[in-house]
Design a protein around this nucleic acid. Structure first.
Length: 266
DNA sequence: ATGACGGATCTAATCCGA
C-alpha cells in the first residue's frame, strides 16, 4: 500500500482550519501531524476534521501555546505523550498507526524554539531546548520491534543548505553548531534516517519556514528547514518521495511553516 | 536579521515565536 504522511506547523489550527481542510482535500494524506495547534483539547476542531475523513485523532493541546495533534484516516492506537523536561507543556504526541501492512509508530514533536541568545548560561530557553534534545536521545526508531517515523518542527536547520546563509546564521538560534551537533546525536542514537534529504540532494537548498517579518518572503527567500521527517531505516528504504509545499506560504492567512509530505510504499 | 509580522489572551497591551 501507499502510505502518505504530512507534517505541518499550523500556528493556530482554529484560525487556519479552512486551509487545513483545503490541504486535506487536495493532497489526501493518510496521516497529518500538526504542531502549534494553540488550543486546549476541547477547542480542537475535531468534528470538522472527522467530516473531512480523518476520524482518528491524538490531540495533546494546552491553552494559548504549543500543542500537537495527529489526525488519521487509519486507526490509531497506543496514543501517548511524553512530558520532556517535565515542564508540563505539550510538545509531543505519539501513536501507532495501523497501516494495512503492519503497525508504524508516529512521533510528532514541537521542539522548543530556544529564545534569542545562543548561550545556555544566559538564556534559560536555550538551555531548555538543549535539555529537550538530550532527552530525545532515548528514542529508538525500532522501539518494541515497531518501526517508527518521527516528524515535526524540530526548530533546527542542521545542514548548510538548510538555511539561506550558513555564515550569517551560525550564531543565530536554530543553526548554531551546538544545536546541529546535538540534533545529529539524537538522530544517530535513535537509528533515524533523514527522509527529506534521502530524496532532496543535500547540495540543494531546502526550506520549510519563512519569517512573517519579511514582507517579500518569496523574492528574498531567507528561509530555513526547521521541519523534518525521520524514519527507521527499513521504512526509509521504502520511502518513495518528499514534497515541500512552498506555495502554501503564499496561501490566504498562511502559517509561517509549509506542509511537508512523505510517501512510502509499505 | 535582536526585527518590518502575526498569534493568543479575562480585547488591550503584552508575551511569544525563530
Amino acid at each position: 500500500m501507499t502510505f502518505k504522511l504530512a507534517t505541518w506547523n499550523i500556528n493556530s489550527v482554529r484560525l487556519r482550519l479552512p486551509i487545513v481542510e483545503q490541504f486535506l482535500a487536495d493532497h489526501a494524506p493518510d496521516v497529518l501531524c500538526l504542531q502549534e495547534i494553540k488550543c486546549i483539547n476541547d477547542a480542537f476542531p475535531g468534528k470538522a476534521l472527522k467530516k473531512a475523513g480523518y476520524e482518528h485523532h491524538a490531540v495533546h493541546g494546552q491553552k494559548g501555546y504549543h500543542g500537537v495533534a495527529i489526525i488519521s484516516r487509519l486507526p490509531l492506537r497506543d496514543i501517548a505523550s511524553t512530558d520532556y523536561c517535565k515542564m508540563g507543556d505539550t510538545r509531543h504526541v505519539e501513536a501507532i498507526v495501523e497501516t494495512g501492512t503492519g503497525p508504524v509508530r508516529m512521533h510528532n514533536f514541537y521542539v522548543p524554539a530556544g529564545g534569542d541568545v545562543p548561550d545556555r548560561e544566559k538564556n534559560p530557553k536555550f538551555d531548555h531546548k538543549l535539555r529537550f534534545l538530550d532527552e530525545m536521545r532515548q528514542l529508538d526508531a525500532e522501539a518494541g520491534a515497531v518501526p517508527s517515523i518521527l516528524v515535526g518542527d524540530l526548530n533546527i536547520a542542521p545542514l548548510e543548505t538548510d538555511v539561506w546563509s550558513h555564515k550569517q546564521l551560525l550564531k543565530v538560534v536554530s543553526h548554531t553548531p551546538v544545536e546541529t551537533e546535538t540534533l545529529n546525536d539524537v538522530q544517530a542514537a535513535g537509528g533515524w534516517e533523514d527522509v527529506m534529504r534521502r530524496h532532496i540532494d543535500p547540495a540543494e537548498t531546502l526550506f520549510t519556514w519563512w519569517s512573517y517579518r519579511s514582507p517579500n518572503w518569496s523574492e528574498s527567500n531567507k528561509g530555513r528547514r526547521l521541519d523534518h521527517v525521520w524514519a527507521a531505516p527499513r521504512l526509509a528504504e521504502r520511502s518513495t518521495g518528499i514534497e515541500v509545499l512552498r506555495d502554501a506560504r503564499g496561501w490566504e492567512k498562511p502559517s509561517d511553516h509549509v506542509p511537508v509530505i512523505a510517501t512510502f510504499d509499505l
